[in-house]
Amino acid sequence: MPDPLLTVHDFSIVYDVDPPVKAVKNVTLELQRGEILGLAGESGCGKTTLAYGLQRLLRAPAVIASGSVTFHDASGVDIDVNALNVEEMRRFRWDKISMVFQGAMNALNPVTTIGAQLDDVFRVHRPDLSRRERRAACEELLELVAVGRERIRSFPHELSGGMRQRVMIAMALALRPQLMVMVMDEPTTALDVLVQREILSQISMLRHEFGFSVIFITHDLPLLLEISDRIAVMRGGEIIELAPAREIWEHPQHEYTKTLLASFPRLTGERGVLVR
């Protein structure tokens, strides 16, 4: 039974330069509650721009040119994201949709403690909480992602890559959002498969506990095939194919999807993808 969480309709983003460049072209998709959607594509295909656009985090010259984004809140209220004013938008962010970046070194402010950066979220979104309650909430989050409460006063550079990543997840969980967007799209920081796998299992575990939906953004199609319910393949700002992961794997429709699939040699499959 369909139970949509996010409906994106005819959504376009334009780089307002001369001549204007369409970064995202008429994207329409529906994300179900509790679903993991993979957004696959190569650099410059518009997948990250689309993710930013959903939260209206675009910076000039990128502007939303058309379309609508509707968030179907758990309370039963439908929120038209594009119609929110600045203050409403600010409150919507992180409370309903949070983000996790893969380049977690840069995603955390290097000069303040991770405690302060977690605290920030509660301070602006939950002004009723007392200082002590906020502190307890931050410690609880750090325990939840197995970083440990004693790390609350640590600076980002004092933590390992995996720990920073988990701090980011703790932060993304803080307000118990209904959707988490994971941007895992940096070629140079994607080099540690063990850390990556650890993070993914953590997300999976937390998702079973809290029931949020996830949008995964990466160029790593094999990874998406394993973790996603459905996969959207993007190229040139368009979603050219959107289907359940198994469908994409077994019966890819679009030529480009086939090309992408063929770009990754099989780890354990028949040797000989590379002609030698």
Binding site: Y52, L57, R90, R91, D95, F101, L108, N109, D120, V121
Partner: peptide, 23 residues
Amino acid sequence: DYITVAQAKGLPNRRVLWHYAAR
């Protein structure tokens, strides 16, 4: 990235400006 994160966190612009960027 941490500026984008700060904005995605829904922090008011003033806070992003002074606590994250200018800092």
